[in-house]
Design a protein around this nucleic acid. Structure first.
Lengths: 312, 312
DNA sequence: TTGTAAGCGTTATCAC
DNA sequence: GTGATAACGCTTACAA
């Protein structure tokens, strides 16, 4: 670059890295910075990455960008990363557009944070890795929600209201978090279950199937807030009042939980905290340590969608 | 690497780049691939980027990951990119966690796609750039929605129903797209306006302010579907039926539009198409061309939230 | 058909 | 306080 623009190469590097203190004349430093400024010079990231052998960049791998949940995970992770001078880029995976290519081959990175990856994390490659919201049986360090506790809070709340038999709208996704939800619910008492895509229209159809029958359950426990929105629609279709005729619960406490009416009783999952803790763990790994797994408690948020069953 | 594992360096490169055809003995090729496999070898991305001077990676810059809208933009962009062998990584910006650092310094990239960046795109640096959903006055090639047409479709629909005076819940975001919405609406007739954050609770408060008065408007035109969800809540609080007592319209047709009840009359913005067209334009730029700007029509989706005004 | 060698732009080491 | 120089791991002529 600006070896033309004043003096010469290593000096430029030193100045622009902010290591000039006591090693470069203030005057020279200023000259370098001015030259860089006027030339619009930006150091070549690829070259730096190669030389240093590290990138100070972490890849956040998420199943989809269509859920605001992962925005919160990112926020937590990025905040924690910034404190240590790391940047975060995001990539959905597996990728319909490009099933073969692993996200770690797209960019030069130091490590990967993977959230809620249903199919498991094999095939990502051999990078330092921390998984979130994933099966604790995974070999990688894991930061998880206490899904069991969250679901138990829901069943306890419903039992206290007097509900005895649950309808379960289960997500048709083969992920640890949903398996656990189903298991815990099954332990809590008799239930009838339908699976559905995580999608309002599909959930509505599944809910109709569960409700349009003589022995319909007094409550629909939904694996996800979006599924609960579908349950609302089914209830309305059948002329059932929520929560008078039918209680509904969600899971996650994403945005839609307060956008619907009545607002949804759900379990708030601390997504930002998840991202932050996972980033902390990953940076530990990069320092050569082996951080322990973490489990984050959810919080039952009782809103207007649950009430005692109609007939006692 | 596997200069140990069989033969030597350039051969490895050729084989793994898939350029072995007629230049390397099939047998040697196989040996190399086996060695790579067993060693778990992956070429160093940083070195490749440096040598090639290109990365075949594009950075998608978005204001937030909390809106599913940008998930759709990504999907379109990534599909188009994959066809040309490019990858896409996503980064929110400006970044609260790290206001100073430009996203282009985080990663080695060939170009940037920036969507809906309110503060403008200066400060991103000097990379090849295509902007989406941004002020067409920007110097960069732009792919935009026909917001004017979309808002006119809404006002025409409302006028036909008999609405004469609009309440406008405007997004408190200084972005081109929202300025246009306000201007077009103002041309269409008398209105009263409140601004609000794009957030259900804030929108509810603003809507209450607009509705809890003797001369309340017969319709609330909202800059965004999420704001419309807040308008629903205000209506409910005041005991107003939607659409019987109050019509509501949104903009974008994101997920929440069909999650609420009644479903929302809104303008569907083709977000995937936006991403795809922008990626096409960016790849054109990278080939040294100067693609023209593009404007994508939205589509009025009439659902259950609009009806004639109560008193004629 | 395969090996040798140069060079991408940076940072770190060391001599001046 | 500053300038040479080597090396990071890869691709691509070109030589063998």
């Amino acid at each position: 670059m600006a070896r033309v623009a004043g003096v010469s190469q290593s000096t430029v590097s030193i100045v622009l890295a902010g290591k000039a203190e006591g090693r470069v004349k203030p005057e020279t430093g200023r000259a370098v910075r001015e030259a860089a400024e006027s030339l619009g010079y930006r150091p070549n990231v690829a070259a730096r990455n190669l030389r240093l052998g590290r990138t100070r960049t972490v890849l956040l791998v998420v199943p989809t960008l269509a859920s605001p949940f992962f925005g919160a995970v990112y926020t937590g992770a990025a905040r924690d990363a910034a404190e240590r001078g790391f940047g975060v880029v995001v990539h959905p995976w597996p990728d319909d557009a490009n099933p073969a290519r692993s996200p770690v081959d797209i960019e030069a990175i130091d490590g990967v944070l993977a959230s809620s990856i249903a199919g498991g994390v094999a095939g990502l490659g051999d990078v330092p890795l921390v998984v979130m919201d994933s099966d604790p049986a995974d070999p990688a360090p894991a930061v998880n929600f206490d899904v069991t506790g969250g679901m138990r809070a829901i069943t306890a709340h419903l039992a206290e209201l007097g509900h005895r038999r649950f309808g379960h709208l289960a997500a048709a996704v083969d992920a640890w978090t949903f398996r656990v939800r189903g298991e815990v619910l099954a332990e809590a008492g008799p239930l009838i279950r339908r699976t559905t895509a995580i999608d309002v229209a599909a959930a509505r159809a599944a809910a109709l199937d569960l409700l349009d029958r003589p022995d319909r359950p007094s409550v629909l426990v939904c694996d996800d807030d979006l599924i609960a929105a579908g349950a609302y629609k089914a209830a309305r279709t059948l002329g059932l009042d929520v929560p008078g005729d039918l209680s509904v619960t969600g899971f996650d406490d994403i945005l839609v939980a307060t956008a619907v009416e009545p607002e949804l009783t759900t379990v708030r999952l601390p997504a930002e905290e998840l991202g932050a803790q996972a980033m902390t763990a990953l940076l530990e790994c990069l320092d050569g340590h082996h951080p322990p797994g973490v489990s984050l408690a959810g919080e039952l948020i009782v809103r207007g969608s649950t009430a005692p069953p109609a007939n006692g």
